[in-house]
Nucleic acid binder design. Structure first.
Length: 182
DNA sequence: AAGAAGATTCGCT
DNA sequence: GCGAATCTTCTTA
């Protein structure tokens, strides 16, 4: 699913208006991955990861940033895909205001930044992304060759695994040159 | 009840 | 590239 989501469009419908972006970077946290939030079993805070595929899991990281995931395994099995970066499409002025910056390239480059840009907070935890609502996914096609793979960012456990996917050449992808070369 | 770790970001050097 | 800020969750006493 992490690979499948590259190129899809994440749409946020909010009283402020619509904001949306193309997903250009993801990371997989499959069942049994020691870095995954579902690794130690289901708890109230992690329950969304155990929902049917296509539900949102939102949590606060380091006290300052929200991160957004898409549940990826059948009900009862905990796993998810972290959305790490978007290419801004609609509502760019709104995103700029929420982020407090102008630079298009940095509006949604990074998991915490995209959550801020789209006003994704804990109230969206558990939402069904396959139904048009406050937050949903629109389909789009992308050539297989456009997707590259690398190790994941900011974790210590199972760090060598090739579970990060991104759009090759996109300036909206996070991480360093080394990680984006592939 | 207290402490450590963590899927980050921003400002400086 | 480095370190602080910040808070939720889980572990240990």
């Amino acid at each position: 699913m992490a690979r499948f989501l590259i190129g899809k469009i994440l749409v946020r419908d909010h009283p402020d208006g619509r904001t949306s972006g193309r997903i250009v970077e993801t990371e997989a946290y499959p069942p049994g991955d020691a870095s995954g939030h579902a690794f130690r079993g289901e708890t109230p805070a992690r329950r969304s990861l155990f929902l049917r595929p296509g539900h949102g899991y939102v949590y606060m990281a380091y006290g300052s940033s929200y991160c957004f995931n898409v549940s990826s395994e059948p009900a009862g099995i905990g796993a998810g895909v972290l959305i790490r970066a978007l290419e801004p499409l609609e509502g760019i002025a709104t995103m700029q205001r929420r982020r407090g910056i102008e630079t298009l390239r940095d509006l949604a480059r990074g998991p915490g930044r995209l959550a801020t840009a789209l006003a994704i907070e804990r109230d969206l935890d558990g939402i069904d992304l396959c139904v048009k609502g406050p937050l949903w996914l629109a389909t789009a096609a992308l050539p297989i060759d456009a997707i590259a793979v690398s190790v994941r960012i900011g974790i210590s456990r199972e760090a060598h695994r090739l579970r990060r996917f991104y759009e090759r050449g996109s300036p909206y992808v996070s991480g360093t040159r080394r990680l984006n070369a592939g």
